[in-house]
Simulated assay, not measured.
Amino acid sequence: MYNGKVELVYFTSAYQPLSALLPKIGIHAFTQILVNLLGKIMEVETNGFLDCHNLDLSADKIFIDTDTQSVFLIYLPVSVPSDDPGNANFENELRADLIRLIQSVPNLMSPTMTDICTKLADATVSLERLCRFLTARTEKSTKPCGQGQPPLTFTAINAPERVCFHITSPEFVIGKNAAAVQGAITFNRAISRVHCKITFAQGQYFITDLNSANGTFVNRARIEPQKPVPIHDGDIVRLANSDFMVRISGGDAG
């Protein structure tokens, strides 16, 4: 309460505004920030009760954890009628603002950023596909390993700590109990102790939910427990309410 009214306060001292980082940021770090920014916006779009129009996406109101490149946004819970079904106008304005932002920073201009601006300008490329394209730019290509199995990288998006599993074995179990899994995720209590497993068989990667409490999702669709589902390069996997990007060496991000 402040002067008899409810006041919403954001504590941002632990983070840096994007506007302060732009003059000194590298292309790789900026691209990762874009991935995390788009991931955060997609969370709001699919939340069910939040409205993207209430986000303040000015560069001085986008806050970054410089250790992890995680993005934190200011949400203003105001009631403003919107005539923008499906957030089409919001996304168009977002794309235009990001292009202007990139073009305003000399140290970001490069062939890579020109490609990214081209994708941003193409309204037929969804935010999800754009996120996959950007993630492909942040990943270094690696050579396939033993017996024809290409490495799979499983990377957290917008996590409070860096989580990136490089999977080269036929089976890789993921969960929060470090003693029971190969890939431990400890930052999210909603993830089960033994949540899911990634397997490689017959030239294909699969993910299987291991009866987790809060579910496993592939590209926003919840999968049935104990039923392997194929996963591909660029897929977004959600464990409970945390998102992860799948990268497979030699894959096409589309």
Rank of each mutant, 00 (worst) to 15 (best):
T135M: 04
A156H: 00
R137K: 14
Q147T: 09
K143Y: 07
A136P: 02
P151R: 14
S141D: 15
C164D: 08
E171Y: 03
T135P: 01
L134D: 07
P150V: 03
E128C: 04
G146A: 10
H166L: 11
T142Q: 10
N158V: 11
R129H: 08
L134W: 00
C164V: 10
C164Y: 05
R129K: 11
Q149D: 01
Q149V: 11
L152Q: 12
K140A: 12
E128R: 11
N158M: 02
P144H: 03
T153H: 12
I167P: 01
T138P: 01
A136V: 00
R137V: 03
A136Y: 11
I157A: 04
T124W: 02
R129P: 02
L152T: 08
T138S: 07
S126K: 00
G148H: 12
T155H: 02
T168W: 00
Q149T: 10
E161M: 13
T168D: 07
T153C: 08
R162Q: 10
L127S: 11
F133A: 14
F133T: 09
L134P: 03
V163G: 02
F133C: 05
T168M: 12
S169K: 13
P170T: 15
T142G: 07
T153V: 14
R132D: 06
L130M: 14
C164A: 14
L134C: 03
T168A: 11
T155Y: 00
T124N: 14
A159S: 11
V163E: 06
F165C: 01
V163W: 05
F154N: 03
P151G: 04
T124Y: 06
C131Q: 13
K140T: 14
T138A: 07
L134Q: 01
F154S: 00
P151Y: 04
A159E: 01
R132T: 15
L134I: 13
E128N: 09
P160Q: 05
R162N: 08
P170Y: 10
H166P: 01
V163H: 10
P144Y: 01
S169P: 02
L134F: 03
S169T: 15
K140Y: 09
E171L: 13
T138Q: 03
F165N: 01
S169I: 15
R137A: 12
P170Q: 11
A159F: 04
L134V: 07
T153N: 05
V125D: 05
S126H: 03
P151T: 12
K143L: 13
T153M: 09
T168Y: 06
E128V: 10
L127W: 13
G146P: 03
P144F: 02
T168V: 13
L127I: 11
L127C: 04
N158E: 07
I157D: 03
F165W: 13
T153K: 10
E171M: 11
G148S: 05
P170I: 09
S141T: 15
Q147G: 13
H166E: 09
E128G: 06
E139F: 15
K140H: 10
S141V: 14
A159L: 01
A136I: 01
P170V: 12
S126C: 02
A156N: 00
R132L: 08
V163F: 14
P144M: 04
I157F: 01
R129M: 08
R137P: 01
R137S: 07
I167T: 03
E139V: 15
I167A: 05
C164M: 13
E128H: 08
L127R: 12
T138V: 11
L152F: 09
E161I: 04
R162G: 05
F133Q: 10
P150T: 04
L130H: 07
C145P: 01
C131E: 09
I157P: 05
